[in-house]
Design a binder for these strands. Structure first.
Length: 438
RNA sequence: GUGAGUGUAGCUCAGUUGGUUAGAGCACGAGGUUGUGGUCCUCGGGGUCGCGGGUUCGAGUCCCGUCACUCACCCCA
């Protein structure tokens, strides 16, 4: 019986693992240099944790099971509930702002498609316990910092930024009751994601007349500097909207100051589907055929409270290895040297079988000193051993030959330059990777 | 859960109106040069043509079903 990997999962062969590690090393490096600390939680939680955050509907989208005690468990489909649970447990004693990141492996029971699998790694950044606009700016900066790090320029991608609280105050001023905002958000979020006629139909469902639709169209079309100016005119005499606009302007000024203004753009069309966002929301989009958001995040005001914690606001974002891989592959930004295989420092070769014991001894000694040293398991001609050295991408070949027995010297060859020198075993061991020049 | 497309070797693909033991390149393995390497030469392993049924003297090829994968919808990283 032959088995295959479960639907929507991936096997990471060494060359794939090298790419995944490259991505995740980048996530960790960028997180740490921006002042975030890594955390991790259990890979499964009580199902109720996710129900509390997202409602009953979430159950069909995740993998769940019953443990032997009859408890309903779920494999984590996202990290935020775990984060909230962990922070809530120590809410009184953690210094703020809390700047944490994680790279959890998540599972969702969805139908796999481009950029969406059933199992993936997600990079999460969160700043909890601060309402400061600096936290908003920093969160967006971290996302851009990573994308810039892997070679994306403002010509390759854009971060579209909006504020739900601004949108809410504008809607309220136009006579949309607050209790309707959540439904309106869901539809407005699809402005650019649905064909125009489908979008129009969705819009019709949540509006009462043409005047309302007209208002929504005017508001949601706002984009860029000009859009902000239009909204400012619209918000005159509306104190709440005025305050939100001022905050948004401060956010963009800060992003400019941070040197990532070129990546960022105001866009009223970005609303995000998730219900719990209350303030700034943003999504990254790449140029090319991958039309989905490559990262997304926003400010959540009551999330911790909903999960039994104190009233504390936070802002965070997430992206996954699947979308990063998709975009970097399409834009050809994956460095070619990734996945080139193991990098052997030294490949030891014996000139004849009687010297093999020296090869084993020397290799073990080199390994103890931290070098990657290899040799062939098979006793065969020097030519074959060199072939293996090349296949292992070794940087140096070291021949243990008759001259070692006679004079204690080794032949060290740089497999990149082809240069080869004789050197005493002592001098070699003192600096095994020393320059090889004739 | 709904719709569309695709299934021949590990990968990329050939396979003539149905006609003998289904092929190539790459990859993989073994040899060739017996103190010098990824290029070269020779040989080799590997496929119940996704699976099941039907039509036919005969099916990789035609028909039906089924499964898997891919893409799109819902949702979202």
């Amino acid at each position: 019986m032959k088995f295959q990997n479960p639907k929507g999962t991936r096997d990471f062969y060494p060359e794939d693992m090298a790419v995944l590690n490259w991505i995740m090393d980048g996530w960790r490096r960028v997180s740490i240099r921006n002042g975030f600390e890594e955390y991790e939680g259990p890979i499964f939680e009580y199902l109720d944790l996710y129900k509390a955050k997202s409602g009953e509907g979430i159950v069909s989208e995740l993998f769940h099971f019953e443990d032997r005690g009859g408890r309903e468990m779920a494999i984590r489909p996202e990290m935020t509930p775990t984060l909230a649970r962990m922070i809530n447990a120590r809410a009184q004693s953690l210094p703020r702002p809390i700047k944490w990141f994680s790279m959890p492996r998540l599972c969702r029971a969805e139908r796999p498609q481009r950029g969406r699998l059933r199992e993936f790694f997600q990079w999460n950044i969160d700043i909890v316990g601060s309402d400061d606009v600096l936290a908003d700016a920093e969160c967006i900066f971290v996302a851009v910092d990573f994308f810039r790090e892997v070679g994306l320029t403002p010509a390759d991608m854009v971060m579209r930024i909006n504020s739900r609280s601004l949108l809410s105050s504008l809607l309220a001023a136009r006579g949309f009751e607050p209790e309707r905002h959540a439904d309106l958000f869901v539809v407005l979020d699809k402005r650019d994601k649905l064909p125009p006629e489908v979008y129009a139909a969705e819009l019709a469902k949540v509006t009462r007349n043409d005047a309302e639709r007209e208002s929504l169209n005017i508001i949601s079309q706002a984009r860029g500097e000009r859009g902000l100016a239009d909204l400012a005119a619209m918000a005159e005499g509306n104190e709440a909207a005025g305050n939100e606009l001022a905050r948004l302007r401060e956010l963009f000024e800060t992003l400019n100051l941070m040197g990532v203004g070129e990546y960022c753009e105001f866009d009223m069309g970005v609303v995000r589907g998730l219900a719990y966002y209350t303030g700034v929301v943003f999504e990254g989009f790449a140029k090319g055929t991958f039309q989905r958001a490559i990262c997304g995040g926003g400010r959540y005001g009551q999330l911790l409270e909903v999960l039994g914690g104190p009233p504390m606001s936070g802002i965070g974002f997430g992206t996954s290895d699947v979308v990063i891989l998709e975009v970097l592959t399409e834009l050809k930004r994956l460095p070619a040297e990734i996945g080139a295989g193991r990098r052997t420092d030294l490949f030891l070769i014996d000139a004849d079988e009687s010297l093999f014991r020296e090869v084993v001894r020397l290799a073990a000694e080199l390994r103890r000193r931290g070098f990657c040293a290899e040799y062939s398991y098979r006793r065969q001609g020097i030519g074959k051993q060199f072939k293996q050295a090349a296949a292992a991408h070794a940087r140096r070949a070291v021949i243990v030959g008759a001259e070692f027995k006679e004079r204690g010297v080794l032949a060290v060859k740089d497999l990149g330059t082809g240069q080869q020198v004789e050197i005493s075993a002592e001098a070699f061991l003192a600096d095994p990777m020393q320059e090889v020049s004739v």
